[in-house]
Design a protein around this nucleic acid. Structure first.
Lengths: 121, 121
DNA sequence: CTCTTGCCTAGATAAGTGTCAAATTAGACA
DNA sequence: TGTCTAATTTGACACTTATCTAGGCAAGAG
């Protein structure tokens, strides 16, 4: 269940500010940011990452929100389909963990050019 | 026109993977990612950043898309309201430039913890 | 087998989003 | 003043999304 067409992470990591982003790459990257463009999903990612062993089962996550289990399940599915997390069933529980390479790619894309960054920081 | 309640960039930069993201911070950060969660807006950001002098007028941008000027204007407004870009009118033209501090904050948030990152990279 | 628990899927609904055409504002210039 | 160009605002539309309730499947306990 943890495998369902993860996006390829081949085109890699030239910051936005270095050269104009090609349309194809923008089309590929936008869904990644859309996946984390929600407070619940941002917190889910963080909760999973910070949980013991770098993974968490759904029952570890639902308690942190005022939302029904199906809604949490929905958000986890969005994260999984974007390739940001992977999951596996172990007995009764389903565990989720981060795919750090995808996060790294997103982070690198947003790295401001050193020149522009120096102007304000 | 370039000033309309830019979000405060006070809470800063602890990566998602370091400690559980507080709800308040998630609520503040999600709109930033939502603003760039669109292929057109990603390319707009990149085009602005890479343009001569780090700024571009709207007429420099519209040609890169198969979209009408009002649509480009709409996307620029979304970026401006999120605080990712600022703008100023100079005579006939309106110029846009990046706010690199906001981009830096977003990038830092997504920086994978070194341990988790080493496992895959 | 039956019951319970953990998680997911399906369907419905209200709210949000991307796009365009039409109308509007702002500045430059004759 | 009048007209042209640049950019935005408004209003409408189709499409997407976040959430819930109801129901279903899988695994373990009895």
């Amino acid at each position: 269940m943890s495998k369902q067409g993860l996006p390829t992470v081949d085109a890699c990591c030239a910051p936005l500010t270095r050269e104009p982003l090609p349309e194809s790459e923008a089309t590929e990257l936008a869904p990644l940011f859309k996946a984390i463009a929600d407070p619940v999903r941002l917190r889910l990612l963080s909760l999973i990452a910070c949980h013991e062993g770098g993974e968490a089962c759904v029952c570890d996550l639902t308690g942190a929100f005022d939302l029904t289990p199906p809604t949490i399940s929905h958000h986890l599915k969005v994260l999984r389909q974007a390739g940001l997390v992977e999951s596996e069933r172990r007995g009764t529980w389903v565990y989720y963990w981060l795919n750090p390479a995808v996060l790294a790619r997103m982070s690198a894309l947003l790295t401001p050019a050193s020149k522009a960054f120096a102007e304000t920081a």
